[in-house]
Design a protein around this nucleic acid. Structure first.
Length: 267
DNA sequence: ATGGTAGAACCTCTA
């Protein structure tokens, strides 16, 4: 039983519904996890998704900012919309679905970006980001009863040296500072999560999923970062059969600054 | 070293 799963920071789902349609036309993922939907739940384009065949919809949105959504061609059951750092931001939703006779728990995350100043003493947004990652230590790849877990989303941290265009130049830039990358990797390992996008890729190979809007020519400068991630419990690693970063989507009409990442599993 | 773009919503915040 094969299925594909896409994760994409869409940066306004209402504005970019045509791009979502393009993703579906080109790759037809079974499940789509969106972040930064920037859309209250009552304005979510649910009818449009249903029309496209995504009849199962789990949303956790708010007005103006943040917001996550998981939509699927197959039944999904909402498990939780977790609140982090005692703040009412919409940054998480988890659902359960069945594949190959196994129940799978799927977390969809939008981790705080953290502002520009990488000093938690003077930048509350960076403090919030660090606290958020700390709190994610409680989210583990539970393997009870043979079930598996998947965690995807815009995690806003590029943990490894070759997850950014220049390790040296980004050491003091939020998303790649040592305090972030170290607590991020510690949290991932502590939760027993496998970093699927790096599994079979040489450490020195660059992987990007995001290119800034601020570059004059994103393609020419190619100063990307790997901010979007796909993790799974170890018992799902044998079922993981590969992934694709839809880099082309960065060049689509009025693009998001993130591109979809699509993982394939065969259970 | 600096400033560059984009979205939501309405003033400025967030990224």
């Amino acid at each position: 039983m094969a299925f594909t799963l896409a994760t994409w920071n869409i940066n306004s789902v209402r504005l970019r519904m045509p791009l979502v349609e393009q993703l579906i036309a080109e790759r037809n993922p079974d499940i789509i996890c969106l972040q930064e939907t920037k859309c209250p739940d009552d304005l979510f384009p649910a009818a449009a998704f249903r029309k496209l065949g995504y009849e199962h919809i789990a949303i956790h949105g708010q007005k103006g900012y943040h917001g996550v959504a998981t939509v699927a061609r197959r039944p999904i059951e909402i498990v939780e919309k977790r609140r982090f750092c005692e703040i009412e931001d919409s940054r998480h939703i988890s659902v359960r679905f069945e594949a190959g006779g196994r129940k799978i728990l799927l977390h969809n995350f939008y981790v705080p970006a953290g502002g520009d100043e990488p000093n938690p003493q003077i930048n509350p947004k960076f403090r919030h980001k660090l606290d958020f990652v700390q709190e994610m230590n409680a989210v583990r790849a539970d393997e009870n009863d043979g079930a598996g877990s998947i965690l995807v989303g815009d995690l806003n941290i590029a943990p490894l040296e070759h997850d950014v265009w220049s390790h040296k130049q980004l050491l003091n830039v939020v998303s790649h500072t040592p305090v972030e990358t170290e607590s991020f990797e510690a949290m991932r390992k502590q939760g027993a999560w496998a970093d699927l996008m790096r599994l079979n890729v040489p450490a020195e190979q660059k992987i990007y999923t995001w290119w800034s809007y601020r570059a004059a020519d994103w393609q020419a400068s190619n100063r990307g970062r790997r901010l979007d991630h796909i993790w799974s419990s170890n018992n799902l690693v044998p079922a993981f059969t590969g992934y694709e970063i839809l880099r082309d989507a960065r060049g689509w009409e009025r693009p998001s600054d993130h591109v979809p990442v699509i993982a394939r599993f065969d259970l």
